[in-house]
Simulated assay, not measured.
Amino acid sequence: MSTALITGASGGIGKAFGEELAARGMNLVLVARSEAKLHQLASELQTKHNIKVDVIVKDLTETSGSDDVFNYTEERGIKIDLLINNAGFGDYGEFAQRDVNRQTQMVQLNILALVALTHKYLPFMQKCRAGSIINVASIAAFQPIPYISVYAATKAFVLSFSQALWAENRRYGVRVLCSCPGPTDTNFFAEARFPETIAAKNTQITTPEVVVQDALRALEKGDSVVVSGGITNNAIANLSRIVPRQTLVSFLEKQFKA
Rank of each mutant, 00 (worst) to 15 (best):
Q213G: 09
G90N: 05
A22W: 11
V158S: 02
N71D: 14
I56W: 03
N238G: 15
G222S: 14
A42C: 04
K15A: 13
A16F: 08
T197Q: 13
A156T: 11
V150K: 09
G222T: 12
P144S: 11
T186L: 05
T63R: 08
C178S: 14
G11Y: 05
A116P: 01
P123E: 07
R241V: 00
P146S: 06
E191C: 02
L248K: 10
D99K: 09
I145N: 04
Q163R: 15
R241S: 11
E220G: 06
R171T: 14
A153R: 02
M1R: 14
Q204G: 01
Y121M: 13
G90F: 08
N101I: 05
E62M: 06
Q40C: 01
H39E: 14
A153E: 00
L30V: 06
A192F: 08
R170S: 10
L177C: 11
A87D: 10
L248Y: 11
R170M: 10
F124G: 06
F161T: 04
S138K: 09
L30W: 01
F189C: 05
D91L: 15
T186R: 04
I198H: 03
I198N: 05
V107E: 00
E209Q: 15
Y151A: 08
I111D: 01
P144C: 11
I145D: 00
S228V: 11
V174H: 09
K257Q: 12
L122F: 04
W166K: 13
A42Q: 05
E19I: 07
V210K: 15
R217D: 15
Y147E: 03
F142M: 13
I205G: 02
A152D: 06
V211Y: 06
L117D: 03
F142C: 12
L248I: 10
L117A: 03
A164T: 15
T203P: 00
E191F: 06
P183S: 07
Q143L: 08
V53R: 03
R171G: 14
G12K: 02
V211W: 08
K257M: 05
